[in-house]
């Protein structure tokens, strides 16, 4: 018997189904608003401390010191930022001028990020594309560093610096932080996904290992490098314990450490307006990097942790 292909007779919309449809539409609208509400709340809670700080940095010291916490920007912004930037204010716990500290932080972050990327690229290249005795030993040695955060070995590392007389502070500040298991693992992971055929084609084209690295591998790694750079720049900028320990020359103070020093014991008499301006200066560069390079940042973050 041939299959029945006649159309079913049109059926009227049942009244209970009509009610259900209306209710469903209403529920969906309510849920959408609720989603917006929660996200907005999250955004506001996240932004609240920053907003207070931004506002505070535009008032004079006495307004804040009195405790009349302003919620809208004032008129002293320019002078506060100028004071923070050029002199570090005149408070009791004075730090170096924020301008200098920003420069130090930027230099430290750049050195750490580029250093980490450079040596990680090279070592990942060696581990993935060569077969040599001790290859696995080298890999595991690097891998081990992943397990030893700088904080747990802080005192002995500090002693190494003392023993090596590595008191060219910028070198002492950055070099110990440059070895990076994370970056090496990321590049290794990425290199392993590069089709063998590229290497074979390059070999047939007559490219040697260094040439392959420069002409093929490096250009292919550009997005990974950019992604990693964002993460590592922030990592470097936000270093706290190590600079706190190593830097005893005020002219080399980084802004994160300097800011914390300005707080002192948190007295109400602090020059809060300048401190707040310094806080804004301290968080602005890494936040800008994250917001402007968001795509790379998210990629870098989720891929380094695979």
């Amino acid at each position: 018997m041939p299959p029945d292909t006649t159309l079913a007779a049109p059926v009227a919309l049942l009244p209970q189904d009509a009610t259900l449809a209306v209710r469903t539409a209403r529920r969906q609208r309510r849920e959408r608003w609720l989603t917006h509400f929660w996200l907005l709340l999250g955004v506001l809670v996240f932004a609240l401390p920053i907003w207070i700080t931004l506002v505070g940095s535009t008032h004079d010291a006495s307004t804040i010191g009195r405790g009349d916490v302003p919620l809208l920007p004032g008129t002293h912004g320019l002078e506060n930022y100028a004071a923070a930037f050029a002199t570090g204010g005149s408070g009791r716990f004075r730090a170096s001028p924020a301008g200098l500290m920003l420069w130090n932080s930027a230099l430290m972050a750049m050195l750490i990020a580029t250093g980490k990327i450079a040596i990680s690229l090279l070592s990942a290249y060696a581990v993935v594309f060569f077969s040599f005795p001790g290859r696995m030993l080298a890999f595991w040695t690097i891998f081990l560093t992943l397990m030893l955060p700088v904080e747990v070995r802080i005192i002995p590392t500090y002693q190494v610096i003392v023993d090596l007389d590595l008191f060219n502070p910028m070198a002492g500040l950055t070099i110990p932080l440059i070895a990076s298991a994370t970056a090496t693992l990321l590049f290794r992971q990425f290199f392993l996904t590069i089709p063998d055929e590229y290497v074979e084609a390059a070999k047939i084209d007559g490219a040697g290992p260094l040439r392959f690295f420069r002409d093929i591998l490096l250009p292919l790694s550009v997005t990974n490098i950019a992604a990693l750079f964002v993460i590592l720049f922030i990592y470097g900028w936000n270093q706290y314990l190590w600079p706190l320990l190593v830097v005893n020359d005020r002219s080399l103070e980084t802004i994160v450490v300097g800011l914390a020093k300005m707080i002192g014991s948190g007295d109400a008499q602090n020059e809060w307006n300048v401190i707040m301006a310094t806080a804004v200066l301290a968080l602005l560069p890494p936040v800008l990097v994250v917001v402007l390079m968001q795509r790379w940042f998210v990629k870098g973050l989720t891929e380094t942790e695979k």
């Binding site: 089709p195 047939i204 292919l220």
Partner: peptide, 13 residues
């Protein structure tokens, strides 16, 4: 010699 690969192995960049 010259070789043509299965996935062509054209350098993407």
């Amino acid at each position: 010699i010259a070789m043509v690969f299965q996935n062509y192995a054209l350098y993407p960049h």
